[in-house]
């Protein structure tokens, strides 16, 4: 049985890409293996852990639950893309300073979601942060340092 193929066109991290791929290719596999952006990780491949979180047309989605074909015509940003734009450079620096990551496998997805939360530019409690971030699992840190880092950047941004 020959593999059914499809041609997809999208913008990934600011660059237009066009590839012919098996129709069953998930978005995150497409980004990792076809485009070489390996910052988005696969933790569960069933939409629970959040390690594959990417931004599609402005919304953070699970890269493992979307087919690449579904993102045809979309604007996709990964951790590499939002690193290059400098959008979360303050948060990234804080994550390093506060050691809000250990193995780093969940971190790109964690930062994608945190960027979305911080973009709300609103007062938030530690419990609010914990609630919003609960779709991103971390097995190393125990979460406390992640909450510290996000809280501190939110305060800095609101204060600034």
């Amino acid at each position: 049985m020959s593999e059914e193929m499809i041609t997809v066109n999208m913008t990934v991290n600011g660059e237009a890409v066009s590839k012919t791929i098996p129709v069953r290719t998930h978005l995150v596999d497409f980004i990792r293996t076809e485009l070489g952006f390996t910052g988005s990780h696969l933790g569960c491949e069933h939409g629970v852990c959040g390690a594959c979180s990417v931004r599609v047309d402005g919304d953070v989605v699970r890269g493992c639950l979307l087919l690449a074909a579904q993102a045809d015509g979309c604007e996709v940003l990964t951790i590499e893309g939002i690193t290059d734009t400098g959008e979360i450079s303050d948060l990234q620096e804080k994550f390093v300073e506060r050691n809000a990551l250990q193995c780093g496998y969940c971190t790109p997805g964690m930062l994608m979601t945190a960027a979305e939360l911080l973009a709300q530019k609103t007062e938030m409690s530690r419990d609010d942060i914990r609630e919003y971030m609960s779709g991103n699992y971390c097995r190393c840190t125990g979460y406390h340092a992640i909450v510290d880092a996000i809280e501190s950047i939110n305060n800095e941004r609101l204060g600034g």
């Binding site: 952006f37 390996t38 910052g39 988005s40 990780h41 590499e80 690193t83 990234q92 990551l101 971190t107």
Partner: peptide, 8 residues
Amino acid sequence: AVAGRGRY
């Protein structure tokens, strides 16, 4: 790692 440039 925070830049998505970890190498697993």
